[in-house]
């Protein structure tokens, strides 16, 4: 694999890692907000009201931990790919369009 090709794959790894990192955080928001719809209904039903908030906290906690672990691994892999392939060629992580 020549240097040009290696740089190209490093670029792909950078995009994939950033995509996974941002994708996990977006998916976390989608997951939690959809789950909130259900928990909001459970909160209104007298039978389920006493324990719905507790389950919501546990569910959200486990979900956040899972998605943020994926984000962390993706960030680390992206950093590793950038450092291993071309330490000078990438700038520090910057935010996508807000």
């Amino acid at each position: 694999m020549n240097e040009q090709n290696r740089n190209w794959w490093a670029g792909v790894a950078d995009i994939a890692a950033t995509g996974l990192n941002h994708g996990a955080s977006k998916l976390e928001r989608v997951h939690l907000s959809i789950a909130d719809e259900t928990f909001d209904i459970l909160q209104r039903v007298p039978v389920t009201r006493p324990w719905s908030e507790g389950v919501r906290h546990i569910h959200h906690g486990i979900s956040r931990l899972s998605y943020r672990s994926v984000s962390l691994v993706a960030s680390s892999l992206g950093m590793l790919a950038r450092t291993a392939n071309s330490p000078e060629s990438f700038k520090p992580d910057i935010k996508l369009h807000e």
Binding site: W8, S86, S89, F90, I94
Partner: peptide, 30 residues
């Protein structure tokens, strides 16, 4: 001096179209 296969160039063109300003800001070779 670009010896990369055509599919790589095409992939770079598509990704540049979608995220070109971001790729440039990161100095990404794509």
């Amino acid at each position: 001096s670009d010896t990369s296969p055509a599919w790589q160039k095409q992939a770079s063109a598509i990704l540049s179209g979608f995220l070109g300003d971001w790729l440039e800001a990161r100095n990404n070779p794509l």
